[in-house]
């Protein structure tokens, strides 16, 4: 506590001296996942840019709500920032904690991950249209796996069901890897997951991706039509960004956002995106704020009805 107080006064005395000491980057997921990789790579690149250590701290739990609530309650001095995934726009509506983009100082968005529908490699369905026809012929027969009830990929499966006017059986697993493993083993008929998580299994011949839930195709699957081309309009990509507590001094926020932008442009980060199937996409503070608020509004208006319909 006392060190935080000292640093704030120090910051006021010599303007522009931020950062003067070690920073903390709070990750909402356990060590080892995609959020963790993005945060650790961006964090270590920020270190070089800012000249102080950036230490990642994992605070998993409640779909990220614990980490988000923790960061927004810190002193707005810039020494504690957090990773901001799509869940910052969802947890309030899901009822996990009263925290939302309105209560955050959004710094930068660095990537997004498109959702996709995958089936076993041998399956006859090659497009979403064909799949939807088959499902409509046998409502409530086909099982689509997702990464957990209320998770972003489950929401995408529900959006698909609504848009294509079909009735699926949704089977939640804990995380995408459970869903994908069960699809590989033939225990379910299809799975919705991020394109990056599916890519290796498509390359090794176990799975095929038949639709990408976005307005554009995925560079990972140039031959797979996106939903737009098949006449549908749905899809909610996952994304990755960074935020701090509300009320960060303008200069500090600009400095942090700038450091993230430099890290974003690095070869290391671009390589990470390519290998993990993320679309490198940069939004600055104003654009990220607008985007996150729009996303929060979208989930607030659609999630309750979608999840009620699923139950």
């Amino acid at each position: 506590m006392s060190t935080a107080g000292l640093a704030v006064t120090g910051c006021g005395r010599e303007r522009g001296a931020f950062p003067a000491r070690e920073m903390k980057l709070v990750v909402q997921a356990a060590a080892g996942g995609l959020s963790d990789s993005v945060s650790r790579i961006i964090g270590s690149l920020m270190e070089k840019e800012l000249g102080v250590p950036v230490v990642c701290e994992n605070r998993p739990g409640a779909a990220g709500a614990l980490a988000f609530s923790y960061v927004v309650r810190r002193a707005p001095d810039g020494y504690t920032i957090g990773h901001a995934p799509v869940e910052i726009a969802m947890v309030r509506t899901l009822g996990y904690a009263d925290v939302s983009p309105q209560k955050m100082e959004l710094l930068s968005l660095v990537s997004k991950t498109q959702p996709a529908l995958a089936v076993q490699a041998g399956a006859a369905w090659k497009t979403l249209g064909v799949f939807a026809d088959a499902v409509r012929r046998r409502p409530g027969h086909y099982v689509v796996a997702n990464s957990g009830t209320g998770s972003i990929w489950h929401v995408n499966a529900l959006l698909m069901e609504r848009a294509a006017k079909m009735r699926l059986v949704h089977c939640p697993f804990s995380g995408s890897s459970g869903a994908i493993t069960n699809l590989l083993g033939g225990h379910v008929d299809a799975a919705v997951a991020g394109v990056g998580e599916l890519a290796s299994h498509v390359r090794s011949g176990g799975l095929q991706v038949i639709s990408v839930f976005d307005q554009t195709r995925s560079p990972l699957f140039p031959d797979v039509a996106c939903v737009q081309e098949e006449g549908f309009d749905f899809g909610a990509s996952a994304w990755s960004g960074f935020f701090g507590p509300l009320g960060l001094p303008e200069a500090v926020a600009a400095r942090l956002s700038g450091a993230i932008q430099t890290a974003f442009a690095s070869a290391e980060f671009q390589k990470l995106c390519e290998e993990r199937g993320m679309t490198a996409l940069y939004l600055d503070r104003a654009a990220f704020r607008e985007f996150a608020l729009e996303q929060a509004g979208f989930f607030e208006s659609t999630l309750p009805a979608l999840l009620r319909g699923a139950a």
């Binding site: 060590a31 080892g32 996942g33 995609l34 990789s37 890897s177 994908i180 493993t181 590989l184 290796s200 299994h201 390359r203 090794s204 011949g205 176990g206 990470l272 290998e275 993990r276």
Partner: peptide, 27 residues
């Protein structure tokens, strides 16, 4: 062999291999 984790540490190892451009799986 399958590119799916057998436990928690091996899940993290998949990520590490991917960083090095190596894709675990039959290939």
């Amino acid at each position: 062999t399958l590119g799916i984790p057998g436990d928690a540490p091996s899940a993290v190892l998949i990520g590490a291999l991917l960083i090095h451009g190596v894709q675990p799986g039959p290939l």
